[in-house]
Nucleic acid binder design. Structure first.
Length: 464
RNA sequence: GUCCCCAUCGUCUAGAGGCCUAGGACACCUCCCUUUCACGGAGGCGACCGGGGUUCGAAUCCCCGUGGGGACGCCA
């Protein structure tokens, strides 16, 4: 049987890191088995769903390169079909009308909570043989409930968590259609997973408790039960739950912060899944290796430090050419004027092994394209009066120098030898004058790229 | 409260009863490289939640406890 997986977000916000990992695992599972990956937008909560959120999810998936074979399907466009199935369930006695008002239900729930029992519908409108139902009130438009079995257990072998068993007694008759006739989440999922032929449902483990209900409905409909794999959640850097209020960020924020999609993907792949000691691997490799057996059932804490390390790796590995367009944008954002010279590719190559994000890269090389911002502490420490004559002498030598890193190095060495100094004694003030800070790659290479005129101008600026 | 799930270094994890003196990675520390800072290289620190079983033998299986999380909506 062909594998068919799906990612089914509700468009109430951006694609966050947890959703991205769920999508990644579903996607990889389909790829691994040469199956289909389906995108389904669960937008039945009209009040909270927005087109902007749909777009944000699409953007996030596109940035990560998580392409889908089918969809996006929108549940709001499948209303007719849901209503047909509801009618079928009504006809077959698997569903029934319930005329309880919200107030009535609230009171029931509160009462049960107080008594310390699990709040659930008491079945007062559930038809039973020999039972006399109350007279339907005129002013209530009824909801439709699924007639859940009352005995036995629902058992499934979760592909991540192992066997899970829940007693039907713990379940109640859930609402599958609202008073206005629109179907609810648990029902739409059932119809869609069934009719879209989903073979493995890979989703967050906040859905574990929905699974027995869904299985019961699937069985009532005579549908094939898919396999389920419930992924545990991702905690924030601080070990706290990620929520809209606390720490949850869009995957697009990682783009903005200068992370490469391949780094985010690689990091996410290793969060909760492993393949021996392998840490760095391509998505192609991941799709070959991926399986559900090596997913941890426990929650994982997000670790930005490690993401940074992986990102640094991918930046190092990337060609300057592939980074140039992105870096240009970031430089412009920093207010730098990216001109022909110094050559951006050469500058990127000089710096890409030293940074862990693209923002860091852009920030670090900005001084090539705009006047350096002088770090006060560095200036005070290195731009001492006794060194200024030395630099002035060097400037004279440089004026005549052939502008190559090697000849620049020679010029500096000449001054260093003449004055009987250590190399850093000259290199450090130079570094601060030219870059504004006390850290940079080899100063001769920096100077070579910066250009003779600019170097002399910057030295002059400080000396005068 | 009720039900469900989870539990190995600070963090991500390896581990399917003997290969475990518990392995790798990030972080941290030391040293090396060096023109500063990084990068890189070599070392180091550091964990099986507790208690009972089962077994010749348990990080691995079972039970209890503890701790954490999730679910209990006319949200998804």
């Amino acid at each position: 049987m062909i594998v068919r997986t799906r990612f089914a977000p509700s468009p109430t916000g951006f694609l966050h890191i947890g959703g991205a990992r769920t999508a990644l695992f579903s996607w990889a599972f389909a790829k691994k088995h040469k199956g289909d990956f389906i995108l389904r937008i669960e937008d039945t909560d009209v009040a909270r769903s927005t087109p902007e959120a749909v777009q944000a999810i699409l953007d996030g998936m596109h940035w990560l390169g998580l392409d889908y074979d089918e969809g996006p399907f929108y549940q709001m466009q499948r209303m007719d079909r849901y209503k047909e199935v509801i009618q079928k369930m009504l006809d077959e006695g698997n569903a029934y009308y319930c005329y309880c008002s919200r107030e009535e239900l609230d009171a029931l729930r509160e009462n049960q909570m107080q008594q310390g029992v699990k709040p659930r519908y008491d079945g007062r409108w559930r038809p039973e043989t020999g039972k006399v139902l109350p007279q339907p009130p005129q002013d209530v438009s009824p909801v439709i409930r699924f007639r859940n079995p009352q005995s036995g257990n629902v058992v499934w072998n979760d592909l991540v968590k192992g066997e899970i068993s829940i007693a039907n007694q713990e379940l109640d008759d859930l609402i599958i259609a609202r008073g206005d006739g629109t179907p609810t989440y648990n029902f739409c999922v059932v119809v869609d997973d069934w009719e879209m032929g989903i073979t493995q449902v890979i989703r967050g483990d906040d859905h574990v408790n929905n699974t027995p209900r869904q299985i019961n409905m699937l069985m009532a409909l005579g549908a094939t039960i898919p396999q389920y794999a419930h992924l545990s959640m991702i905690l924030g850097d601080d070990g706290q739950k990620l929520s809209k209020r606390h720490g949850a960020v869009s995957v697009m924020q990682y783009h903005e912060d200068g992370y490469l999609p391949e780094a985010v993907l690689n990091y996410l792949a290793r969060l909760g899944w492993s393949h021996g000691d392998d840490e760095i691997f391509s998505m192609q490799q991941f799709c070959e290796w991926f399986d559900l057996d090596h997913i941890t059932p426990s929650a994982a804490q997000f670790n930005t430090e490690k993401l940074n390390w992986i990102n640094a790796h991918y930046i190092k590995q990337a060609s300057a050419e592939s980074l140039a367009a992105d870096i240009t944008q970031r430089l412009v954002k920093l207010g730098a004027n990216v001109s022909e010279q110094p050559n951006l590719l050469a500058v990127i190559n000089l710096y890409k092994e030293r940074v862990s994000t693209l923002n860091e890269l852009a920030t670090n090389i900005a001084y090539f394209y705009q006047k350096p911002v002088m770090d006060a502490a560095a200036a005070e420490k290195h731009l001492t009066n006794d060194i200024k004559p030395v630099i002035a002498a060097l400037a004279e030598l440089l004026k005549a120098a052939d502008w190559q890193a090697e000849s620049i190095h020679h010029a500096i060495n000449e001054v260093v030898t003449q004055r009987q100094l250590k190399f850093p004694k000259v290199a450090m003030p130079l570094r601060v004058m030219l870059t504004g800070i006390a850290q940079s790659p080899s100063i001769d290479q920096v100077m070579a790229l910066l250009g003779k005129d600019e170097v002399l101008a910057r030295i002059e600026q400080v000396l005068k």
